[in-house]
Amino acid sequence: MPLNDNKRFVERDRNWHPPAYAPGYKTTVARSPSQAYVSLQTPSVSELAGPDFTRLRMGPHDNDLLLNFRADNEAQAGLPIGERVIVFGRVVDQFGKPVPNTLVEMWQANAGGRYRHKKDGYLAPLDPNFGGVGRCLSDDEGWYRFRTIKPGPYPWPNNINSWRPAHIHVSVMGPSISTRLITQMYFEGDPLIPLCPIVHTLRDPEAVETMTGRLDMARSRSMDCLAYRFDLVVRGELQTYFENQG
């Protein structure tokens, strides 16, 4: 990234993203600032630049969750249990311009809805062959791709009987720390989506559509796996044409 502070990003629409205080998702109540954010009218290189991960060394299976975690025990070693899926898409900015070589990271529960995390004590068992983490760089045209299993839904303590729809957490850097975004991909048609208090933190139903992975039969592989397409849109980069800014 050249250190060009002559650029700007399209302002983040905070009515489109979920608000900090969204009481239907109870944990937000004590974790949401009550004061207004201070808007930086003159962003500097501190906001406009960001890390470039082209030189981060990754393993050959970092984007393949079917292969990147194996049971220690030979007798158990194999493939993870669950529906085999490809999750892929394109990282573009708000003007449709591809975002190449950007870091896309993801994590998820296993097919039973259990995370491989010290703090997750859900009834469903761990899968000895599934870790649940992936990462890759988008290619020259912004495309990224993971192979995994479809995660299961799971219950969580919010209302008495709240369930998370099946979802994959997706993190993208984009060209700047201003474009940094973490979201969740849901699976098209999941009946738990409209029931989820975290989905409901969004006020606009169209915003929920931006988080929905779409079944793509053309990219699925016969006798092997289904494919879901999930494009990521990060803030658009504007060039400033006038030099009257201080």
Binding site: W16, V133, H169, E206
Partner: peptide, 23 residues
Amino acid sequence: MLRETASQTAGPYVHIGLALDIA
């Protein structure tokens, strides 16, 4: 212009993806 993909919480298990040692 396209709308930005909407944000969602990183959740309690963010470490699996971004801080593996902690998970």
